[in-house]
Design a binder for these strands. Structure first.
Length: 583
RNA sequence: GGGGCUGUAGUUCAGUUUGGUUAGAACGCCGGCCUGUCACGCCGGAGGUCGCGGGUUCGAGCCCCGUCGGCCCCGCCA
């Protein structure tokens, strides 16, 4: 039997070879006794010629006539160079074609509900229902291949660096706090539930207590929260933990990993990555994961604003601005829309100043020539720039302006394509104050170590305590984050107290971890990277759905299998579960 | 939980403003012809639960109410 080769790999070097191809019919072009068939397999597409005048029997021609889109075929023939004028530069294999001697239909196919081709305009809803057809489209096939390459490279790299891949339980225990858990009822113990892991956090720390020293896992994680284009309810983390290490070890490890992974998609990775404290990120970009591909940084104009007879400026704790280059040409309507957006983002209002001949501004009657010039100098604007100014409480102002910066940049086309700006964000506060519940909660998680110098602040000034935590950011997207953990039981106890968790609650929720730490926990720390997001950026995809084989919709359903679905009464009985009326 | 957009042949859409004869187009599909196509071409043909349910009306794809699904954003995501 002739050896099968992949259709997309055929090039001029293969001319003269007898080969077999197997795959799906992309397209048939029928000229009677001459038939062209585009054959697709996962490697690509190659044109096949079935020609009565070039050795194809009548039977072979008749078989080729029967072919329709998505039929599965096996065929044999010879690789032949096309004559000049017959070559197709649009096809990677366009210099050659297969002159077929034999064609066999392995499986027939119904007409697909949409054409299997890259530039499909089929609705995503339809494509998700027939996901196996969607995945045949070369761009999705290639995304799956890229994802495999990334996962494979990660395993290889981690292995070379002495990390052991350890599987942790999927059926685990709910730890309230954090995201909503997916629950799995226990049949053996009615009324109790497993939770699917939000991350293997506690187990990987137990691996450190267990003395495995270096752990990693390509781990599925589950969070029952609403979806976004970059958020799926189940997703994959590259989960890493190591003992006897510090922050620098993690930075070097991950930078090294990225220098092997991102080039798989042609993306260069200059190391080391720049680093920025959380505080600086907030001040300059109004966000803890700044997109460094463009400027338009936030500027502090509080001092100048105080000189303006405009009450909101005088009353505000702080006044900040961004400068939109050439933004003076923005229409009044557009600026009004931005004002609306700013209000939705929590700003009390949006002040704008155009640095054009008219000095147009929403506060023109308060704006003297002197203050206009002072603003011009402080902001270092050019002619025809536009300043967008927000006054108010510091965090609200920074946050709203940071969001506005991103929207304006997107709409004004200020974000360069094909640039990849990596960044470490460091020195996070350990706690965040929650207005709603009037208490502190852990910004990262409750096992994050406070900075050595700040341990005493756990009791005296929790809000000022810095964490040994870090995030790795790419183009404004959080790729991952981690921390050096607490390994001293008494520090952990103080941490729980600062979080308002009683000893009893702590024992109930994390007792096994607390107990484990009494038996000698090495200093350790780690990081978790979003594999899906990494592949999404590498594939230049718009949505996580484009890099997950079988993703869920915005309402967390699988349109192909129809999950989630009702179950039999019998199944519920076995679990001791009765549904509430009306559901 | 809130906001925006959206659902009409297999597919992508038009038709909804101003309710009115038989709901159109392109691609795809089916049959025929065709030896250099790769958006093949030419001739002929079939194909509709206007998401679903109810209401208003002499009459609803179009108006009203409800409901289901898809996408994006806010909240949420330690």
């Amino acid at each position: 039997m002739t050896e099968r080769v992949y259709a997309g790999t055929l090039r001029r070097e293969k001319v003269g070879r007898k080969v077999a191809l197997a795959g799906w019919v992309q397209k048939r072009r029928d000229f009677g006794e001459l038939i062209f068939v585009d054959l697709r397999d996962r490697s690509g597409i190659c044109q096949v010629v079935v020609d009565r005048e070039r050795g194809a029997s009548e039977e072979t021609v008749n078989t080729a006539k029967e072919l329709r889109s998505e039929f599965v075929v096996r065929l044999e023939g010879e690789v032949v160079e096309r004559t000049e004028g017959q070559k197709n530069p649009k096809l990677a294999t366009g210099d050659v074609e297969i002159v077929a001697t034999h064609v066999e239909i392995l499986a027939r196919a119904d007409t697909p509900p949409f054409a299997v081709e890259d530039d499909t305009d089929a609705a995503e809803e339809l494509r998700l229902k027939y996901r196996y057809l969607d995945l045949r489209r070369p761009s999705l096939t290639q995304n799956m291949m890229l994802r495999h390459k990334v996962a494979f490279a990660v395993r290889d790299y981690m292995n070379r660096n002495g990390f052991l891949e350890v599987e942790t339980p999927i059926l685990t225990k709910s730890t309230p706090e954090g995201a909503r858990d997916y629950l799995v009822p226990s049949r053996v113990h009615h009324g109790t539930f497993y939770a699917l892991p939000q991350s293997p956090q506690i187990f990987k720390q137990l691996c450190m207590v267990a003395g495995l020293e270096r752990y990693f896992q390509i781990a599925r994680c589950f969070r029952d929260e609403d979806l976004r284009r970059d958020r799926q309810p189940e997703f994959t983390q590259i989960d890493v933990e190591a003992s006897f290490i510090n922050e620098e070890f993690i930075y070097t490890l991950i930078e090294g990993l990225f220098t092997e992974v991102f080039p798989l998609a042609g993306i260069p990775v200059p190391v080391p990555f720049p680093r920025m404290s959380w505080h600086e990120a907030m001040e300059r970009f109004g966000i803890d994961r700044p997109d460094m591909r463009f400027g338009m940084e936030l500027k502090d104009v509080t001092a100048v604003a105080r000189t303006i007879e405009f009450e909101p400026f005088r009353a505000a704790a702080t006044v900040r601005a961004i400068v939109v280059p050439g933004g003076a040409s923005l229409s009044r309507k557009r600026i009004d829309d931005l004002t609306e957006e700013a209000k939705k983002l929590g700003a009390s209002g949006l002040i704008w100043v155009k640095f054009d001949a008219q000095h147009a501004s929403s506060i023109k009657k308060f704006l003297t020539d002197a203050s206009f010039d002072a603003l011009r100098q402080t902001l270092r604007v050019n002619e025809n720039d536009l300043a967008l100014i927000i006054a108010g409480k510091e965090l609200k102002v920074l946050d709203a302006l940071g969001q506005l910066r991103l929207r304006v940049a997107r709409e004004q086309g200020m974000i360069p394509e094909n640039r990849f700006e990596f960044l470490w964000v460091t020195d996070f506060p350990l706690f965040e104050w929650d207005e709603e519940t009037q208490r502190y909660f852990a910004r990262h998680h409750p096992f994050t170590s406070p900075a050595a110098a700040d341990i005493e602040k756990l009791e005296s000034d929790p809000g000022a305590t810095m964490a040994r935590a870090y995030d790795v950011v790419l183009n404004g997207l959080e790729l991952g984050g981690g921390s050096i953990r607490i390994n001293q039981p008494e520090v952990q106890a103080r941490m729980f107290r600062a979080l308002g968790i009683t000893d009893q609650e702590a024992r109930q929720r994390f007792g096994f971890l607390m107990e484990a730490f009494r038996y000698g926990a090495p200093p350790h720390g780690g990081v978790a990277l979003g594999l899906d997001r990494m592949v999404m950026l590498m594939a230049r995809a718009e949505s996580l759905r484009d890099v997950i084989a079988f993703p869920k919709t915005a309402r967390a359903q699988d349109l192909m299998s129809d999950a989630p679905a009702a179950v039999d009464e019998k199944q519920l009985d076995e679990l001791g579960i009765a549904l509430k009326k009306g559901t």
